[in-house]
Amino acid sequence: MLWSALVGTIEQGLVYGVIALGVYITFRILDFPDLTVDGSFPLGAAVVARFIASGGSPLAGTMLALGAGIVAGLATGFLNTKLKISGLLSGILTMTALYSVNLRVMGRANIPLLRKPTLVNWFGDFGLAPWVLFLVVVLLTKLALDLFLRTEIGFALRATGDNEQMIRSCGVDTDNMKLLGLGLSNGLAALAGALVAQYQGFADVGMGIGTAVAGLASVIIGQALVRFRGLGWATTGVIIGSIVYRVAIFAALRMGLAPTDLKLITAILVVLALSAPTWKGLLEKFWGGKRRATGIPTA
């Protein structure tokens, strides 16, 4: 019982690791706080569910979901680079719009996929558990991303997130790089959404809430755990972070927390991690001040 629950948790960690890799591209490499993923993740689920429910092939549906996610990312990129709307707001606008789009795609709030052909079932027919599928997908994504980040365009993408002025003066159109990064990131989020829908057996319009923050939590945990330098390690860390995050959630549930409390826990976790430098500074100041107070008499 516990074993199968743990396997399920790791399966989730692997499939959500695909989103975490996408979040890593925007938040870490591009330095773009993209919230579009809250909409592109359920978009992927909606597209694949509608496609399969209408008799389409799961593989084609999954690819279609990937494409839809890329378009969603490009929409955010368009708002930001061409219409000059701030990055954060661009993502929120696309995410909000996607809620309606996702309902339109599905035609209702929820599509069940019971007794329908899915990629997960296909793998099951070969006697393979879902984690095999998810492991293959997340590792292929990771390796492709590692290779891509070492190409000329990959260099330009990383430099865009690091120093826009520098990369523009080297002849790179930073707008295109942002579009590329956002497209890739949201493509991955939608791909994960499509896989999750086929895994859990339904697509739901509300399944995207907190996707970006959960992805960010995974990235932060990964960076804290895997401290080796180099790109290959960074993406490995992101996947490990995603699995650890899901295990932590699982543990919290076992300890008796309500599933509805998890978003709060995740948010607090991210706040603590992001504010760590501030806390450290405050603590040092406090202790330093105290030591001074005891050491030197005040005038």
Binding site: C170, G171, V172
Partner: peptide, 19 residues
């Protein structure tokens, strides 16, 4: 070397070749 690689390709169109 990555910084230099970006600079040296200034006149070219960037592609999917090794950085």
């Amino acid at each position: 070397e990555e910084n230099l690689a970006i600079a040296v390709k200034r006149p070219e169109r960037l592609g999917m070749a090794k950085g």
